[in-house]
Design a protein around this nucleic acid. Sequence first.
RNA 1: GCGGGCGUGGCGGAACUGGUAGACGCGCUGGAUUUAGGUUCCAGUGACGCAAGUCGUGGGGGUUCAAGUCCCUCCGCCCGCACCA
Length: 849
Amino acid sequence: MARYNAKESEKDWQAAWDAKNAFVTPNDFSRRKSYILEMFPYPSGRIHMGHVRNYTMGDVLARFRRAQGFNVLHPMGWDAFGLPAENAAREKGVNPREWTYANIAAMRDQLKSMGLAIDWSREFATCDPSYYRHQQKLFLDFFRAGLVYRAEADVNWDPVDGTVLANEQVIEGRGWRSGALVERRKLAQWFFKITAYSDDLLDALDHMERWPEKVRLMQKNWIGRSEGMRFSFDLSNGKSVEVFSTRPDTLFGASFVALSPDHPLAEALAAKDAKLIAFVAECRRVGTAEEAIETAEKLGYDTGLTATHPFDPNWKLPVYVANFVLMAYGTGAIFGCPAHDQRDLDFARKYGLPVLPVVVPEGTDAKDFAVGDKAYVGPGRLANSRFLDGMDVAQAKADVAKRLEAAGKGTRTVHYRLRDWLVSRQRYWGCPIPMVHCPKCGLVPVKESDLPIKLPDDVRFDVPGNPLDHHPTWKNVPCPACNAPAQRDTDTLDTFVDSSWYFARFCDTKAEAPVSREAADYWLAVDQYIGGIEHAILHLLYARFFTRGLKKLGYTNVDEPFAGLFTQGMLCLTTFKDKNGQWLEPGEVEMRDGGFFKKGTNEIVTVGPSEKMSKSKKNVIAPETIIDIYGADTIRWFMLSDTPPERDIEWTEDGVEGCWRFVQRIHRLVTEAGALPPPGAKPNAKSEGADLGLRRATHRAIAAATDDLEALRFNRAVARIYELANAISGAEAGVAGAVRREALETLVLLVGPMMPHLAETCWQLLGHKTMVVETAWPVADPELTAFDTVNYAVQVNGKLRAVKQFPKGADKETVESTVLALEEVKRALDGKPPKRVIVVPERIVNIVA
RNA sequence: GCGGGCGUGGCGGAACUGGUAGACGCGCUGGAUUUAGGUUCCAGUGACGCAAGUCGUGGGGGUUCAAGUCCCUCCGCCCGCACCA
């Protein structure tokens, strides 16, 4: 029999599915639904292995749910705005639009070659005016609802990408894309009011059981809620300064007040103090070299001012400007309590300030408690604190709060680390912001009837800066309110806005409104979302915010966009370097005589560690070359096998070969099955012997593989399928044809979501006229998955001595006496009587000697 | 520094609420088929030992009839955040 020709077969089945519109999802709102979504790709031009892994996992789930009878939504689109298109325009002179759509066309073909069960009729790109038109409408809706505002603020400026960035997009002080050190600038920009939902975004995390704990924690830390107090110190110059503290209980341990170098008061003082100007400049210089922060010494400048203790008019504290106080957090000013805060302690030791413990551990006398070079941050009782003495930390906090509030000096507040989402980008290839700046009327929203505000085509990239701003005419428009000459906002929206609601648009891509309420009510939330961990905060937090905004505006009825989230691991591959330390592609390296050489030469190659596939390290394998050689099913199977889906997976040639052999093996099992009864033949309900054995193996495989797929344990489902294949090849020749047919059909159907083309071919070879994609998922017969005999492990003193089979439900006495009579047990007991015999039903017997 | 995760054969990894450690795959060894290579098939494959058996889930200690799994402690690796008051 001929081998399975994956290449031909796969193309044929893809055409056959298309011809039947097999994956076009009807908006039939009466059926039970399942919305499976993978993070949509940026159209860079080629798919990479990460895409293959991501989309394979989603596809398996989509096909599995479909077979189970769900109405499945499994769409695909393109996150198509962004800088690479603009950079390509600058570098190669191409038009960003043409470049993007050409990339989309190429990638669509590549995705289709994977045989994905996607409803392509719902495809869209975020750069389609028919998409961003709705986004502009939503922007205006959000604006009217108070969720969008414009403000001047210190912003993160990426000098390489030439635009501002949101806080989430600054990683270790550098732009997330460019890697350039971010500068601070004061600019008027647009913000989404994500902080309006700080508490809600935080609290909901506790109920999102189907999200990875890790992602929830990262978001929790990012939102960074802390409860404390704001209160004021009166200063010797007649002014006052407000501080924020989570530890007002330690107020009697205070030994200084410190201001951020960026604090307005510090700036005011600096105006009259040359040394302070120099100090502030020094702080800012260190501040930009982010690596230095970790080791940065605590530095302070004594302003000469004093602050009066809120509870003692005679107690004066020195006021410093200190480099470790951040303007961006709290009020930009603190009181320092060295005994109970490490930073304050470091600072106090350096400048010789008092260190007075005011919280001592339970059971310790305050006289015996001293703080060395480690601040005490644990629980305890208040001491050296006048009216607070003897209270625990919580009581003291409450008491201080009550007194400060009563005195009108402070208030309890909750502070968040999360700040509003800055969405203005000084770039061309993004969604234009539908706002007009009128000299008379100020900020005026564009009329909805004028949407979409389209990007102009005739833009120049040969001059630096924002092409929309440079455009000779585009920005000049009459004011929508007064008709006087005015100017459009020339910024575009952060591309993360585009991806913050695309899942809602997929519910009905033809809807006149941005989101069809009826379709959204049916399809949302996404049942299973799959993508990379790199979006743990950025995209996933923005989408959660946006969904709340959509709900507020009445577009949807859900708070959370993604009921289940799965973050897949990355792909890794060995790295190679030549003698000059330059990275080499795997194709440039050959192995011979047990060593690695540059192909065709005797130059020895250095083998590096396996690392995440990346272009810069040249350790990438192009999916299309693998699909070309082995077919899509092989690469799909590889992505699912062995490694749990959340972990990083090592790409190996041997692994792929093994998968390819299994493809052939399944095909062979079917073609060489011999004479089988026709489709529909049922095995004898009272099978026994070898027939029963194979039937049990079949039904156990169904039960186990189904459970594993439900839990996204693809690697285990794969193992179950191998076991079934082994059981089929190992079955005796005499096994009844109907039993063999049942086993083979089951194998094909279980394989179906994972290797869909192979499954269709085999299904046809088994005599079916229908397709696997229209066949229901097999159901395990509980009678056949249960065991009628049980193997007891027999231990003596916890050591395995024998395994003995008993009928299911054998009574303890029988088990015990039979086991004690076993030769192995007698030998191990060596004539001594057992002290105790533990029988765990259906599992184990342990004899204690 | 803080928070989280992980540590099991040569490798990727199984092991449900403590109950036969190593399923399944890769690799490797031997044999059969083949002109040969590949494919395919059969057998084997944690370590030591001829065997009986002993030892084995990062190290040490503990709980238990029984520990990869629970507790304490130490070590190592990975990820996230990072002067957050």
